[in-house]
Structure formats: C-alpha cells, structure tokens
C-alpha cells in the first residue's frame, strides 16, 4: 500500500490576456550573428596560421628551406600577374575535368548495374573492395606503359581515383532511399529511368554529392602527384610540373606559391562550387545540416 498522500489543492481557471509584455521573438546580437558565420571563423584561423608561418620563417631565416609568408605571397602574386600560374592551372584543370567527367559517367553506369542486377552488385562490391585501397597514383607506371607519355595516361589514373569512391557512395545512397518514398514513386506509375531520375537520384543526392566531393579531392591530389612524376607532355605542364621545375631551380618561394595554388584551387572548388550546390539542394531541403 502506498504511504504517499499528496495534498488536494483547489482548482482554478484564469482568463489569459494577449501576451504583450515583450516580443515573442528576439534578434541575436551582432557579435553572435558574426560568430555563426563559418567562413569568418575559418578566416580567423587562416590569419593566425599565416602569422605563425611568418614568425617561424623569420626566426629560421633560411630562404632556401622555408621562405616567409610574405615572400610566398609575393611570388604567388607575381606569377599570377604574369599569367604563368594561371596557364599551368588551366592545363591541370582541363586534364582533371576530362578524368572527372569520365569517372562520373563510369560510376553511374556501374551503379545502375549494381542497383538493377545481383551480378552488378557483386561486380561493384568486389571491384571497389579491390581498387579503393589502391592509390590511383600507383597505376601511373602501368598507365604510362600502356598509353605513353601523354594526357591519356593521366586521364586513366584520374578515372580510377574518381570512379570507385563515387560508385560506392552513390550505391550506398540508393540503398538508403526509404521504402515509403520508393512506394510513393511507384504509386504514381513512375518506372525505369523516370523513377531513377525523379525519385532515386534526388533522394540519394546527399550521398552522391559527398561521393563527388571525395572523388574531386582524390582526383586533384592524384593529378598533382602524377604531374610531379612525369611532368609535361609536348612542353605543356600543369601545376605539379610548375612545382617540380621550381624545386629543381631552387626557387623555394615559387614551390610554396605552387603548393598554395593547389590548396587555393581545392578550397575554391569545395567552398564555391560544392558548397553552392549543397546550399541550393540538400541544405535547403533539410536532408543535410
């Protein structure tokens, strides 16, 4: 038996006036709003890092090993102004784009096979298990042997760096589409390609986008590394070649400028292109934070 006896209290009802004491919503202060901007916070980190670099380089005082931040910035500015870096970048990016697009096409082909047939599924899982741990750059010697010193070799390696992570992510994305959504789509008579393009792809877009991002990062790294290995074909080299050449001539500030350019291009693509795509799609739809 319970020994607890809460007291019996009188009941009451009260009329509620409209709430006017203060507004229900309040704006955040300017500082809070500024601090919420991720770009601003990251910029702050970059400034701190640059200052640190400058400090260490001045203290080291060895231009050949570690040029200062300001010297690197000057070299970067100069080669940007002369157009040399831009030309190198354009060469690198044009090769990259070919490999990237081919890789995407191949990834969608394989994923489509994997979604529709058991054999395709086995094919995808076996090949990704094999090639995902293999750095694409390790295929470069073979690629050079097969395709010779030229763009084709680079593109072959790039396709490998994009294909497997993208296929894996896209496939996982398709598997993750909720059953209810699939049934809803079929309910309206969607079949085949219309079903894939109007239900599966948009529903799997967060995974596909992350696959595209990973693929892009892999491809960019692989390309620079490949250019460092065999450099130019018919006198036209990309960013990797620029770094390699300047190291040979001991222009360390230019080596740093080249590295900075590699980073800047990576950041620009990540922050401008992918971020914008995410903002107008998956973030807007509330399927990704």
């Amino acid at each position: 038996m319970s020994a607890l006896h809460p007291p019996i209290r009188p009941e009451y009802e009260r009329p509620l006036e409209p709430f006017e004491e203060q507004p229900v919503e309040r704006a955040l202060s300017l500082r809070q709003r500024l601090w919420q901007r991720g770009g601003l916070r990251k910029m702050l980190i970059l400034i701190v890092l640059a200052l640190l670099w400058e400090g260490i380089a001045r203290w080291q005082n060895n231009e050949l090993l570690l040029p200062t931040f300001s010297a690197t910035a000057a070299a970067l500015a100069e080669d940007l102004r002369s157009g040399e870096l831009l030309v190198k970048m354009a060469i690198s990016l044009s090769v990259l784009l070919k490999g990237y697009l081919l890789g995407i096409a191949a990834a969608f082909l394989i994923t489509t096979l994997a979604v529709s047939t058991q054999t395709g599924r086995d094919f995808l899982s076996t090949l990704t298990a094999m090639f995902n741990p293999l750095p694409a750059i390790a295929l470069l010697p073979l690629s050079l042997l097969w395709f010779g010193l030229g763009q084709v070799s680079l593109v072959f390696v790039l396709v490998h760096s994009v294909l497997w992570p993208l296929a894996l992510n896209t496939y996982a994305g398709f598997l993750g589409v909720p059953d209810t959504l699939r049934m809803a789509g079929r309910n309206y008579g969607l079949k085949g390609f219309r079903y894939v393009f109007q239900i599966l792809i948009p529903a799997a877009l967060p995974s596909i986008l992350s696959g595209l991002k990973i693929g892009w990062a892999f491809a960019w790294r692989t390309l620079i590394a490949a250019e460092l290995v065999f450099g130019a074909s018919s006198g036209k080299g990309g960013l990797g070649w620029y770094i390699f050449q300047n190291r040979n001539e001991l222009f360390t500030d230019k080596v740093f400028a080249g590295l900075a350019m590699v980073i800047i291009v990576g950041l620009l693509v990540e922050n401008l292109i992918f971020h914008s795509i995410e903002r107008i799609t998956v973030r807007r739809w509330g399927v990704q934070r």
């Binding site: 909720p178 209810t180 809803a184 309206y188 239900i199 529903a203 739809w285």
Partner: peptide
C-alpha cells in the same frame, strides 16, 4: 497505379526536395 493512391504512416513519403 494512380487510381489507388496511398497515404502512408511515415513522414518520409513526401520527397524532401
């Protein structure tokens, strides 16, 4: 078929996009 439309229990029946 669209002559028999289903309303499901789950909220994810609405394409979020």
């Amino acid at each position: 078929g669209p002559d028999r439309v289903v309303v499901f229990q789950e909220f994810d029946q609405l394409p979020p996009w």
